[in-house]
């Protein structure tokens, strides 16, 4: 199939960007979205143009490195799918596709479609861990964890840190990402001693980094490739406010 792409091009963080139109031909429906961009890039190089920079690594939906806003939706319209897993069979011949980078002040554009998401690392560094030195752990069976808690903690722990939640949120809020980690650790017995401190430090760090606040709009969970539920945000709020969370 043949497609028209409008791609955000920006030489570096300080220069002004703009949308540039490209036409790509003979795209196979079996290609992934990124493979389609590979094809375009190969052509751009041979034409002496600068290929489009975009982040990616695992190309199987787990590393969280890829992420493009495709026709206005982070990771594209297919639900629970990362950009690298999105395949061209979901597009039609003749379609126009607009491709933009994540937009948020704490995610400055580095080049073209590449943004700097290190703010997420700062949030985890603020407290997204259990302080346990190596080698001092009790036997793994010393503390049983009810299956239900373990499973819910796991659901939250599957966050890949891609940042689509921020990109989608009209407030540019990192709440879903932050809440996913707070929920993961807060539900396990191992995470209890630091639970209150963790929530406070992580939430405040997110604010300081310039993310917006959550007004419970729910776009984040809709685009989240791992379907992290809004319940995690409720749990984060409860932990932050020092209230006992209810529900799962």
């Amino acid at each position: 199939m043949n497609l028209t792409l409008k791609v955000w091009r920006q030489k570096n963080a300080t220069s002004r960007g703009h949308l540039t139109t490209y036409r790509v031909k003979e795209i196979s429906p079996d290609m992934s979205f990124l493979e389609m961009l590979d094809v375009l890039n190969e052509r751009l190089i041979l034409d002496g143009d600068d290929p489009i920079a975009f982040d990616h690594d695992c190309r199987e939906g787990i590393c969280g490195m890829c992420g493009l806003v495709i026709n206005g939706v982070p990771h594209g319209e297919q639900r629970a799918t990362t950009t690298c897993q999105l395949h061209m069979r979901h597009f039609k011949d003749g379609d126009t596709i607009v491709i933009e980078p994540w937009r948020a002040a704490p995610f400055p554009v580095v080049k073209d479609l590449v943004v700097d998401r290190s703010a997420f690392d700062r949030i985890i560094e603020a407290g997204g861990y259990v302080s346990v030195p190596t080698g001092s752990a009790p036997d793994a069976h010393a503390v049983p964890v009810p299956k239900a808690s373990a499973d819910t903690a796991f659901d939250a722990a599957t966050c890949i840190g891609c940042g689509a939640c921020v990109a989608a949120c009209p407030n540019g809020s990192a709440s879903l990402f932050t809440a996913a980690k707070i929920t993961h650790l807060g539900l396990l017995p191992q995470g209890q001693p630091e639970r209150a401190r963790r929530a406070r430090a992580m939430v405040e760090t997110a604010d300081e980094l310039g993310f917006g606040g959550c007004t419970n709009i729910g776009e984040c969970t809709a685009v989240c490739p791992k379907g992290i539920p809004l319940a995690t945000i409720a749990r984060m709020n409860a932990d932050y406010l020092g209230l006992a969370a209810t529900g799962d």
Binding site: P138, A140, V143, A153, H184, L188, Q190
Partner: peptide, 10 residues
Amino acid sequence: IDQCVAQGVP
């Protein structure tokens, strides 16, 4: 395994 469980690996 002990170490990872203590870290909260689910």
